[in-house]
Design a protein around this nucleic acid. Structure first.
Lengths: 204, 204
DNA sequence: ACGTATCGATACTAATACGTATCGTAATAG
DNA sequence: CTATTACGATACGTATTAGTATCGATACGT
């Protein structure tokens, strides 16, 4: 930790304070452009225009688009409800169906690919995506499975980490590569996924 | 079909013929840039420079970068060997391990994300990617499973299409989101995937 | 009231890429 | 040999974006 040189670090600086409204508008415009027009269309000028702020206002807060993306993902952080029906199979199904209709899932899908593409030059962007949009969901899968192991309806030698990759991976792959770009996931897809992998999860 | 107006359509046009060498160099440069620098770095001028050809030579053949990509993916088309060991489980394992070390898989991974990102504006690019790089592999999984159903070591009510998404989806997801961008897939990953989903595949 | 920092807006330079045109040269058909 | 087309190289005008500078106006502390 770097110690604050100022004895009263919380003291307000003089002058007009930064607009919280502008903060919010910048991050919202960023996500909107990312979803509607894609990563390549994400420029500082475009964000400024859509947010209705001056470029100065953005440059005062960020130096690169990537910094803005990282912050915007952080602001998207959402609470994922952990279903608890008493049945692991039912818990996973509910999670799958919730994911299918969640707003932030709609954000994830179009953005995902392009984010991965920038990982080589901008690991921080991928990290933020993983941290704020992927990990919370994978953690939920893990929790459900761990609870199932304790309860006894999940086999104890299960490869939890793998399943936490397999479920989202299969769904995302299907959405990105098999469906038309604008189509939603079919309603029964979570059921199909679970029907197939459940055999490897359930206790005998 | 549009009938040829010319009676002898194959007749050579006068003048210097197009260089097959230039054709090849353009497509190779395209794949190289895509893998090494990413989609955003893929420009006509960049391709021309790396291929050592004039921009004219490119514009004589293509009008957009996307056209070049589509053609380049087509040229990547490769023969996928279908393992046939007599055991479905062993066939799938061999396929997984072959995929792990294949050169074209190394092309797929970095490119994949960025391709998906362009799908909205350029469906043809996604189609070419799917057709030439994904479908051959998924078709192989299907063949192996169908053979297994006939042989009887695969349950007859299996969801083949789903498994043909789940296996590549899980592996790709792990590679893109869980591993450091430059890391290879661990040697035992295909085994882990198969250990988990095999329960839902094998006949009782 | 005064000092200071932020606000949106506008203007500007530099860099990059596109797409076209033109050059002299090379390769092929007739 | 002549006509035709392709070649790599270079130059050019246009468009987009980055990043900085400047403007008068605004909001806050003292």
């Amino acid at each position: 930790m770097i110690p604050d040189h100022d004895a009263a670090p919380k003291r307000r600086r003089p002058g007009r304070p930064r607009s919280a409204r502008a903060d919010r508008d910048i991050l919202e415009a960023t996500i909107q452009i990312l979803v509607e027009e894609g990563y390549q269309a994400l420029t500082i000028e475009g964000i400024a225009e859509r947010a209705g702020v001056g470029k100065t206002t953005i440059y005062r807060r960020f130096s690169t688009v990537e910094e803005i993306i990282v912050r915007a993902f952080g602001a998207l952080d959402l609470h994922v409800d952990v279903p608890d029906t008493g049945s692991t199979r039912e818990d996973l199904l509910q999670l799958g169906h919730a994911f299918r209709v969640q707003a932030s899932a709609a954000v994830m899908f179009p953005v995902m690919g392009q984010i991965v593409g920038t990982a080589l030059s901008n690991p921080a962007v991928l990290d933020a995506f993983r941290e704020h949009l992927m990990k919370p969901r994978q953690a939920t899968i893990r929790k459900i499975l761990e609870r199932g192991v304790e309860r006894g309806d999940v086999r104890p030698d299960i490869d939890i980490e793998l399943i936490a990759d397999l479920i989202p991976g299969g769904i995302i792959f299907y959405k990105l590569f098999q469906l038309p770009p604008d189509a939603d996931l079919p309603e029964d897809y979570p059921d199909r996924v679970l029907n197939t992998i459940w055999h490897g999860i359930k206790a005998e």
